[in-house]
Amino acid sequence: MNELAKRFKGVFTALVTPFRDGAIDFAAFDALVERQLSAGVAGLVPVGTTGEAATLSDEEADELIARTVRLAGGRALVMAGAGANDTLKTVDKVKRAEKAGADALLIVTPYYNKPTQDGLIAHYGAAAEAAGLPIMLYSVPGRCAVEIAPETCATLMEKHSNIVAIKEAGGDAGRVTRLRKACGEGLIVHSGDDGLTLPFLSLGAVGVTSVVANIAPREMVRMVEAWQKGEAAKALALNDMIAELTDAMFIESNPGPVKAALALSNLSGPEMRLPLLPVSRDNREKLADVLGRFTSAATAFQEMR
């Protein structure tokens, strides 16, 4: 594994953006970031889908990225969300994230527009030329209605040396093999689906960009590290322990459930920005039950070690 790939190895947490009375709750954000760092995550991802990037102003996004960089202090790689469905806006976001001190960029496929693969090549090419930071492509067809073809990924890597990775969130573990065959061993792959982390790792991915790590950072880190150390049985046991919580994180649109779980854990509030709303009362109760079982299992697991 080359030095660049090593920087992307492990658990990257897709950070939520806590709100209070419509404004960002920076005190809660800082505490959440410190909790992640204490758990040993390898990366922090502010201003992504889980961070409700689509509802943030440019100034809010800048502050969140800069704040994450300051808090991380080199202890974790900061990969800032910098995508939009307008190429000019994406280029602006790329430049702003670089100015704010980000180490790398996560750029989602343009949503709503449904560009062709040639359109994706032109879009990502413009973003890559706007900054020198390493770029992780983000393919999430369930939200964006377009998937990055393996051949498109290969073309982008050939044309732009700073396009080095992909976050694959299409729910198909087989894509890891197809992407690696098309792009070669130089491609860095992250699972974008928490529940597929172990299958992705087994097929050559090096890490996960995780939603559930907001709640269970230590357990996610231990699971991935166990797999990477060849401790498959331990990794599987941790996966089994986390699985129900992982499924619950998507009982409604992300990040509603994870924000509800954080609120139930007294770590931050459940507030969302429209058009998203906090989870329903019924689902909040289901989450409380799941969270209770997870907490008990995590405590028992720790005592067994």
Rank of each mutant, 00 (worst) to 15 (best):
T13F: 11
L64M: 12
M241Y: 06
E303V: 12
A154F: 10
D289E: 15
E219G: 05
V47G: 01
S161M: 10
G81L: 01
A104V: 14
V189D: 03
A165F: 07
R175D: 10
P115A: 06
T13Q: 12
F29E: 01
D282K: 03
E252K: 00
I188Y: 02
D62P: 01
A27N: 04
S161N: 15
V221C: 09
A237G: 13
G40K: 00
L245H: 14
L88M: 14
I24R: 09
A261V: 09
E231S: 02
D21T: 12
N239S: 10
V146T: 08
S268E: 14
A232G: 03
A100E: 05
M136E: 12
G269N: 10
A213E: 06
T299K: 15
A82S: 12
V41D: 00
P150F: 03
A53Y: 13
P255V: 04
T177F: 09
H190I: 02
V41Y: 04
L264Y: 03
W227K: 03
Q302S: 15
C153F: 06
A263L: 06
F301S: 15
G256W: 01
T55N: 05
E151P: 02
K234A: 07
T209V: 09
T87Y: 05
A102V: 09
C153K: 05
G142Y: 08
N239E: 04
K93P: 09
G10N: 13
N85V: 08
S253R: 02
G10L: 04
S161T: 03
V108C: 11
P18Y: 08
P278H: 01
R70K: 13
R143T: 12
V211R: 05
K159N: 14
K6S: 00
G186K: 02
T116H: 10
G184W: 08
V78T: 15
E3H: 08
A122H: 03
R293F: 08
L15F: 11
G132Q: 03
A213W: 09
T90Y: 10
A76F: 06
G81T: 14
L187K: 00
I215G: 13
I163D: 15
S253Y: 11
S280R: 02
L15Q: 07
